[in-house]
Each structure stands twice: as C-alpha cells, then as structure tokens.
Design a protein around this nucleic acid. Structure first.
Length: 421
RNA sequence: GUGGCCAUAGCUCAGCUGGUUAGAGUGCCUGACUGUGGAUCAGGAGGUCGAGGGUUCGAUCCCCUCUGGCCACCCCA
C-alpha cells in the first residue's frame, strides 16, 4: 500500500525549522506591536464573492489561482488567497473604525493560491500582514512601509530594495489607462500575445511585461495623469520616507496584481531570491475596497510579506535566533533507577528547567554522548547511590565538571548554568 | 496553465552500451567499556532504485502514464 504523500505545493514545518519561523513571526509581531498594531485573526476561508468583488474578477489570483469549493449547504467558499479583504470585512463589520481611527491590526497566517509550485512559491504559504484602516493620510502609508522596513532591519536582513510608486486615485487611473491605450494601440502588432489580450482588459498590466521591455521603457509615465492632489499626496509619502532615512527607488512601472490599489504602492525586493520570485512582499493603499465589499467608504493601507521567502533569505544570510541550549538530559544509570530519575526530572521541570528523561536501555556512555550531540547543556545522572541518598549528579557537558548534590541544589545550579540567574 | 530538467539507504551521492547478490561517506544501533560523552576499532540494521504499466531471456538503466521537486514562462508571497 503506497504511503500517503503531502499534497502538492505544501510544506511540513519540521522541528529543525520551526525555531527559525517562530523567531521570524515573533520579531514581526514585536515590531508591528511597537507601532501599535494589535493582533487580529480572521477565517481561513471566506465567501468566494468577497474575492471576486474585492481582489478583482479580472486578476490572475481570482481568475485561476483560487481554491474554491461549495460546502454542504451550497455556499460558495474560497480558501483565502490574500488577507486584506477578510481583515477589512472583520474590522468594518465589527465597527471598530467607529471607536478609533485608524484601526491598526496585524496577523500571520496561511494563504492559498493554485499557481504552479516553484522555490518560494507554494499552494499554501504564510503571510505577515498589517492593515491601518479608517484614515486617508500619507503619513499612514509611510508608517506601513516603515514597519516593513524596521521588521527586516530587526531580523538583520540586508540587500533589500524598496520600490515605491503611486497609482493615483480612480480618475487618475482612468486617465492613465487612456494614455496607455493611446500609446499601445498603434503598436499592437509588436506586442506579445498576452499583452495584446491585456490591452483591452487591464492596460496597466502591460507595464509588467518583460518580453516587451523595449516598448515598456518608452511608455508614458503616470505622472502627467495625476491630479495635483494625488501628486502632493505622493510627494508627502516620499518626503516622510526620506525623513525616516528609509532608502527607496521610485518605480513608475510598479503595478500590483490586485485591483483595489490606489495611490501609494510598494514592493520589497531581495537580490538573492532567484528569478521571478524576488519579491519578499508588498502593499499599498486601498481606499476603494471597502465600498466594493458593500461597506461605507473607508480608506486603508497595509502590506503582506511572504514568510517562506523571508525564511529563505534568513537561511542564506545565516540569520536566526541566538542558539539556545537550555535543556538537560536526565539519565537513569540502570533500568531500576528509572522511577528515581523520573522523579528528579519532575522536580527540575517544576523549577523551570527543560528536562528530557532518557529511559532507553542503551549503555550509559551512549546515552551521555547522544544527549550532548542533541544539544543538552548538562546531564543529570541518577543511580542507586543517588536514589538512596536523595541526591543527583549533574555534569556540565561543555566543561566536563560534575558534582553530586541534593536535587534542590542541582536544580539551582542548573538554572544558573542555563539562564545565568 | 505552457515548456524543460530531475527522483537510488535517515542525509549527501556513486552505480560503465541493459546482465546475476544495488554501493560509498555520513548518521543510526551494538560490542570492545557492570555508573560517565564528542575519539578509535570491530560488527549490525536500514532500499518495493518515486508509483504503475510496457519492451526484453533479463530493467535502477530504454519507452509510456502518473505523482512530486526544481528551472524558465505566467504571476506574485
């Protein structure tokens, strides 16, 4: 009978890796928390319609990448491909924005997209997300970008490139769209097949095309299409970034793949991520999204960062939590010493020490070696002598020093050794 | 969704134009060593050669299908 296999495009988080991810998640929660972003959690599946209307029916995500299903009651549901619409729905339906503006929330969780898996691209992947909802201000956009920047700074990641652009408001975008159509229409027969199709559907996407790079280079920029208000809004954002000493590149070709972005958009690129998967994350302002979802018009700004890609960069740069060897292995000398050794382990745990009881019937020297190899900082031996005297023998596996004392004294000595207090 | 490369012990890999019993290093287990580790020596376990089918006297090797990974598109996290 063939063994069950892991579904395509998914990953198991094994113990060897879980510490690194925990560290990344905790660092993000701390940095975002320091900026006032509070934890929120929303369902992993939502109404399919929310993404069709919010994310946009014409986007690749909605068109061909969603894990959609109907439940037994006939409801059309989708495993969330992105977090923003769900969070906005949760915040607005709970009227959080009535009590306080902006509402600052953060979360981490799995997302699902059915795209062909590749390194850094999976069917199930995790995102770190913050959203600032209820206020339309360039300062908030700059803040969102800064949180992402400070997060990677806190991890110690280097080699980041921050790409920033503005898409203006809805009217600006319509003007820009018209300008692009005007530019591209006479060149239609020079375009690649995809771009010719997209010209009618979503002309902004043509700016993404790598095949038609030559034509893209000469395409009109959005600048002239922006209203004076949009221009000054964006100027304010960049001024604040400069003041915060966050280096960025203005990238007029930066077009995000989701429909709802307006005004500020940004992506974080990393040089070491291979090929097309070079974006660690991105985000921007989504002032029109609430209305599309059927809520009162409410501005918002936020980002999503890829956890797996962040982990890849951390691995490559040798970043991670400070190695901690805070466990102790408790070794009964003989099988008959197991109850006494278990009691000692129990007392150590009560004193706050991580104690692993090795009750296997291997030879003592093998067990001692195995304990050291697997990261124990100290070993505690309990044999007939110790059991009779109510003591234990503890050994510092780095220095080799060892002594026998009462279990309470051993616990104290180990705590000092492990935590320095 | 399109095209290409790949899949052999827990891990990293070798395996000749298709030939008998599929190897190495490392890890794991045991002994040398009745209560003291990272070394050494000796031994042992561990493989449906990703799965299924085909060609052949004979397939890890050739062909087909499937599954999974990777790469390039596409797109993004």
């Amino acid at each position: 009978m063939p063994a069950i296999t892991r579904p395509r495009g998914t990953n198991d988080l094994l113990p060897a890796e879980s510490g690194l991810r925990e560290w990344v998640l905790a660092t993000h929660a701390r940095v975002a928390g320091a900026h006032g972003y509070e934890l929120i959690d929303t369902p992993v599946f939502e109404a399919t319609e929310m993404y069709e209307r919010g994310t946009g029916a014409g986007t690749d995500v909605v068109e061909k990448e969603m894990f959609s299903f109907t439940d037994r009651g006939g409801r059309a549901l989708t495993l969330r491909p992105e977090g923003t619409p769900g969070v906005l729905r949760a915040v607005l339906s709970a009227h959080l924005d009535q009590a306080r503006r902006p509402v600052r929330v953060q979360f981490a969780g799995p997302m699902f997209r059915y795209a062909r898996p590749q390194a850094g691209r999976y069917h199930e992947f995790w995102q770190l997300d913050i959203e600032a909802i209820g206020e339309r201000s360039p300062a908030l956009d700059a803040e969102v970008i800064e949180v992402a920047w400070r997060f990677y700074e806190a991890l110690g990641v280097t080699g980041l490139s921050l790409q920033v652009n503005t898409l203006g408001d809805l009217e600006d975008r319509l003007r820009y769209r018209a300008a692009l159509v005007e530019y591209y229409t006479p060149l239609q027969d020079q375009l690649c097949e995809d771009c010719r199709r997209r010209l009618g559907v979503n002309p902004l996407r043509l700016l993404d095309c790598k095949r038609d790079a030559g034509l893209v280079a000469a395409a009109p920029h959005i600048g002239p299409s922006l209203s004076p208000e949009s221009q000054s809004f964006f100027a304010e954002v960049t001024t604040l970034l400069v003041a915060a000493e966050i280096p960025f590149q203005l990238n007029p070709r930066l077009v995000r793949g989701l429909d709802y972005y307006a005004h500020t958009t940004f992506e974080l690129w990393h040089e070491s991520l291979q090929g097309a998967q070079n974006a660690l994350g991105g985000g921007g302002r989504y002032d029109g999204l609430a209305e599309v979802l059927g809520f009162p018009p409410t501005p918002g700004s936020g980002y999503a960062l890829g956890v797996e890609r962040t982990l890849a960069v951390c691995r490559e740069q040798g970043l991670g939590p400070a190695p901690r060897r805070e466990q102790v292995v408790v070794l009964p000398v003989a099988g008959t010493d197991i109850p006494a050794a278990a009691a000692v382990a129990r007392q150590l745990r009560a004193a706050g020490i991580t104690a692993i009881l090795d009750a296997s019937d291997r030879r003592l020297d093998r067990r001692l070696a195995a304990g050291a190899r697997h990261g124990a900082r100290a070993a505690v031996l309990v044999g007939a002598d110790e059991a009779a005297a109510g003591t234990a023998t503890w050994k510092d596996l780095d220095s080799g020093r060892q002594e026998t004392a009462t279990v309470a004294d051993v616990a104290g000595a180990l705590r000092l050794l492990l935590t320095g207090q």
